[in-house]
Design a protein around this nucleic acid. Structure first.
Lengths: 239, 239, 239, 239
DNA sequence: GATGAATGAGCGTTCATTCAT
DNA sequence: GATGAATGAACGCTCATTCAT
C-alpha cells in the first residue's frame, strides 16, 4: 500500500534494466522487484524472523502465495536482498572514491567514502541496511556466502587505507585491518541511533574523520571539528 | 543442563546476595536466576524472536510452563535481562574509572573503561551483550525504558570525557556527544565480528585508544599502536 | 466426536495396559491413544495424504496443535499406526494357529488363520487395515522399516504352510512363497470390495480354502463350497 | 522430458487414431494424449493426491495452466485415465480369450487371460494400473461410474468362468463370483509387490492357474507347478 | 493453444500462553 | 513451585484453479 508508493531504495531502480535497452520491465520483473523492495524495507525495520511473508506480500500488493511464483523460499528472498545490498555499497564506495580524482588527497577521499557508506545505510539503502542488520540473524546456510561478500567490501576499504598509508597520509605504524574494523564498526552502529532527519550525515562523517585523522589529544593543533553541530547532538541526548 | 553448570555471567552472581548476608538463595530465587541466565545466554546468541521459552526452560532445567510462575511473559524476561545488563555495565565502568584513582591520567582511565566495556560485552556478560544486541528487536512497548537506561550509560561516558576535556587532555573543539557515540559504536559493533578466543580485548582497546587520542595522520608523532597485533588481525581477514 | 465414542479397534484396547497393573491409563496415554485410533480410522478410509492433522485432531477431540504434544510429526503417527497394525496381525495369527492345537489338521489351521486375517482387516483392525492400505503411500523414509515387518509376517505364513507341506497336507511340488503371496494377496484385496455387513468373512475364507486345497477342476471330488453364498455374492454384482 | 520420450503405454497409441485414417493427430489431440500419458504414469506411481498438476504438466512438456485448455479439472483427467484403463483391459482380455480359439481348453484360455491381466497391470499399462491403484482414492463423485466399469470387467471374467463350468472344466459346486473375486484380487495385489524385472509374469500366472485348478492338497496328482521358479521367489523374501 | 502470473484455501508445524493438578 | 497437557493464532509453504494476453 503505502510502501509500494514510496521512493524505491537504491537497488530496485537498477533492477529494471536487464530486460532490454529502453524497454519497460516485464510484469514479472516488476513484481519481483516489488517483493524485494518490500522485503528489504521490512527486514531493515523488523529483522528476519519478525518479518512474515504475509507482510511482505501485503507491502508488495499481492497474496502470500504469489511470492512463491518469484522465489522459492523466504531464505531465497533474504539471500538476494543481502547480496544486492552488499553489491550496492561496494559499487558506490568504489565509484565515490575513484571519482574523487587526483586533485584530492586520501583524507578527503576517505571522508567521501564514509559519507557514501552512511548515506546508503541511513537514508537510501534498505538493501544495504538489511545486510548490515540481518547478517547475524539469517539461517546458517546462507552465512558463508554473505561473509564472503562482506570480506570483499572490507578489502576494498583496506585497499584505500593502505594506499593512503603508502602515500604518506597515514602513519606507518597504524595497522590497517583493525583500523578499518574500528571505523566501519562505528559507521554501521549508527543504524542503531542515528536519525538522519535530525542530524546531517555529512557532518557526522566529517567529525569522525577529523577525530580519526587528527586525534583528540591536545597538541597545539586546533583544526578538529570546526563543524557546528546541531543542538540535538550537542546536548545530553544519547542512546 | 550444560548451561546451568557453566560459570554464570556477571549478573547472576550478584542476584543471590539480596536475600540475606550469608544465606543461600531460596529455591524460587534460584530458579528465577537460572531462567534469567539461560535467557541471557540464548538471547545473546540467537536474538529475541529466535529464542523460545522452551529453549530457555530446558537450559534452566525446567518445563516451559514453570517459567510463568516466575515471570508473567517472555517480555518480562527480556525486560529484566536487558535492564540488568545495562546496570551491570554502568556499575562496572563507573567503578573501573573511579578506581583508576588520581595517579593515572584520563587517557588511561578511558582506556580502562573501554577494556571493561569490551570485556563484559565479549567475554563475561550475557546480560549486557543481550542488551546491546536485542534493543532493536524487543517489542515497542519496552523500548522507552531501555532507551532511558542506555542514555544514562551514555551520560556516564560523556561525564568522563568532559572531565578529560576540562583537565586538558582532550581538545576543546571536540564535541563530546558525537565522540562518545563514535567510540561506543565501534566498541559495540565488535559483537558482530570480534572473536575473543583469537584476539586480545586489551590490545584492541589500546589500539583504538591510540587512534582516537593521537589520530592516524603523519605529523612527527610515532607512538600509535606500538602494540604488536596477532597475525590473525593483521592479515586480510575481515568481516 | 462420533469417532471417539465408537468401539475402539483392536490395538487401542491393549495400549492401556503399560501403566500399571489394574490402573487406569494416564491422561496423556489416553490422548495418545485417541489420536492413534482416530488416525488409524481416517487413514484406513482416506489414505495418508488425504487425511489431515486437523481431521485427526477433531476426531480425537482436540486441537491440531495439541497433537504435537504427543507426536513429533504426522510421519510419527503413521509409523506407529502401521507398526501396531502389523504387530496385531502377527500376534493374532500366531495365536490363532497355535491354539488350533493338535486335534486339527493344517487345512483347518490355515483356514482359521485366513479368518483371523480377514476379520482383523475387515471388521476389527483400523491399524492393520491402515497398514495394508497405506504401505505404498507413506514417505520413503518409513518404508524399509515397514517392509521388514511385512516380511516377518510373510515368514510366519511361510512357516505354517511349510509345516503343512512337511506334514503331507500340501503337495511337495507346490512352491510356498508364491503360494503365500497369492493367498495373502487375495485376502488383502478384499479391502477393496468386501463389505462385511453384507457377506460373511468366515464363508469367504472357507470358500477360498476349499478352492486352494481342492482346486476347481472336475475330478470326482465334490466337496468344494457346499457353503451357501448370500444372494448378493452370487449375483452379477461385483467390483 | 524423459517421460515424454518413453514408450507410451497401451492406451495412448490408440488415441491417435480417431482423427482420420492415416492422418496424424492434431496438435491438440497430441497434447491431450501427452497429458493423459504423463498423468497415468504419475498416478500409478504416486497415487492421486500426491500427483500434482505441475508434475503432470512438466512430464507432458507444458505449463500447468495449459492443462486447463484440455481438461476442466484434475478430476476430469483421472476420470479419463481410469476409464481408459478399464476399457484397455476389457478389450485385451476379451480379445485374448477369444483368439485362443477352439483348439484350446478353458483352462488354457483362463491362463492366457490371467497373463494378459498381469502383463497390462505390471508392464504395459499405466492407465489400467492407475485404475487398479486409484479407485479407492478418487473423489466420491467419480466412483459410481468407475465401479460400473469394474463390474463390467468382472462380468467378462464371470462369463468365461461360467462357460468353463458349463463345458465341464470347473466343478459345478464352485461359485463363480467369489472365485473371480479371489483370482482377480490375487492378480491385482501383485501391483504391491511383484517386480516384473525379477520374476516372470507368465510363470506366476501358470503357477496360480495350477493351484486354482488342481488345488494344493495331496491326492495322487503331481502336476502342479512343474514350473521352475527363479531363486528369488523361492527364498524367504516376501512382502 | 498455451503461457505467465496470480489467487486463496488449506496444509503440517511452532510457540507463547493457560490452567488444573 | 512446578508440571503436564492443551490451546489457538500464526507461520512458511503448496497446489488446484483462474484468466488476461
Amino acid at each position: 500500500m503505502e510502501l509500494a508508493k514510496k521512493a524505491r531504495s537504491v537497488s530496485s531502480r537498477r533492477k529494471l534494466a536487464p530486460r532490454q535497452k529502453g524497454k519497460l520491465p516485464g510484469k514479472s520483473a516488476l513484481s519481483r522487484m516489488q517483493i524485494l523492495d518490500a522485503a528489504a524495507q521490512l527486514f531493515r525495520r523488523q529483522g528476519y524472523s519478525d518479518t512474515t511473508l504475509r507482510q511482505i506480500a501485503k507491502a508488495a500488493g499481492m497474496q502470500a502465495g504469489s511470492i512463491y511464483y518469484h522465489f522459492g523460499s523466504k531464505d531465497e528472498i533474504v539471500d538476494e536482498v543481502l547480496a544486492t545490498g552488499m553489491k550496492d555499497i561496494y559499487k558506490l564506495v568504489e565509484k565515490t572514491v575513484a571519482s574523487s580524482g587526483e586533485e584530492s588527497g586520501y583524507r578527503e577521499r576517505i571522508e567521501r567514502g564514509m559519507v557514501a557508506h552512511l548515506d546508503l545505510l541511513l537514508t537510501k539503502g534498505d538493501y544495504f541496511s538489511s545486510n548490515i542488520r540481518l547478517y547475524g540473524q539469517i539461517p546458517e546456510a546462507l552465512r558463508p556466502k554473505h561473509l564472503h561478500l562482506r570480506q570483499r567490501y572490507g578489502r576494498l576499504w583496506d585497499q584505500i587505507l593502505r594506499e593512503a598509508q603508502e602515500a604518506g597520509e597515514i602513519r606507518r605504524d597504524v595497522k590497517i585491518v583493525p583500523l578499518r574494523m574500528f571505523i566501519l564498526g562505528a559507521l554501521n552502529w549508527t543504524m542503531e541511533w542515528f536519525d538522519p532527519h535530525r542530524y546531517s550525515v555529512g557532518d557526522f562523517a566529517r567529525h569522525i574523520n577529523a577525530v580519526v585523522f587528527d586525534g583528540i589529544k591536545v597538541d597545539g593543533k586546533k583544526d578538529v571539528a570546526e563543524v557546528e553541530w546541531p543542538a540535538a547532538l550537542r546536548g545530553p541526548r544519547s542512546r
